[in-house]
Design a protein around this nucleic acid. Structure first.
Lengths: 132, 132
DNA sequence: TGTTAATTGTTATAATATAACATTGTGTAA
DNA sequence: TTACACAATGTTATATTATAACAATTAACA
């Protein structure tokens, strides 16, 4: 079979919802919100999430156990992700910085490990929360 | 009260165990292994872990929900962590690269966010697993 | 010594995620 | 068009990770 080009029903439902909310959202919150579309069980959500992460349509914010739609150039850098996370309001933004991604892609550790993926999460205060 | 200088009983028990195993370990596995020392409940472990993370004695590997002792210059960079993770054998190493940490510490995102912490996880194949 | 904060102990439960298995759908090639 | 392989679905149960709530105890120190 050729590489999948269209999403399956459940995958599309989950992706549509994640893109709509436009901020990191948790699996069970997704479940709650797509039940009217016929998705009934956690596994149906998790399976869709797994696939969507795999193909780069969404990313997982590991420190928050949450999922967010990819914003970068139509998902071409799904294996190289960077986020900024406000520790006060929990706002999360995907960082799109070619210099940073170039630097990290080319990073070589001392043990000679061959990287094919990375995830970077910055924490701090967003502009709004800094002022307060 | 001054900043804590000595660890409490449970904190010390948990830290001793994490340092002994010398690889990422999960909370419930810690619990299982320190029960002979009198720690009986998950919360006792999680509270110790929280504190140890806070003071930089250990780090959490977010993508694995596991904890590992800090290896870097006596834990001075606990707020700036970087790890390499082998996706085959799950070996995890803390990266100590002053150029990398300098680069990331000084990184400014476009939204003007002020960072005080970051966590970076690289994924790939370690030397051993690359050969196979 | 009294006060405050940190730590502990304990039970219960919340939140996150996967196992296992049966069934259905879909692309491809014989 | 049938047969194969694989992807996706549906479902129930359960595993794993983490926190709430509250009472009791310990440690630092003004």
């Amino acid at each position: 079979m050729l590489k999948q080009e269209t999403l399956s029903k459940n995958q599309q439902i989950v992706l549509d919802y994640i893109e709509k909310v436009n901020e990191p959202i948790k699996a069970y919150s997704i479940l709650h919100n797509v039940q009217k579309k016929g998705i009934k069980a956690p596994l149906q959500v998790y399976r869709a999430l797994d696939k969507l992460v795999e193909i780069g349509k969404i990313h997982k914010i590991e420190s928050r156990n949450a999922f967010v739609a990819c914003k970068n150039s139509n998902c071409q850098i799904s294996k190289a992700t960077a986020f900024s996370i406000c520790e006060n309001c929990e706002e999360v933004s995907e960082i799109s910085d070619s210099k940073l991604s170039k630097y990290l892609k080319n990073f070589q550790d001392k043990a000679g490990m061959k990287f094919n993926k990375y995830n970077l999460e910055f924490f701090g205060l967003c502009k709004k929360c800094s002022i307060k």
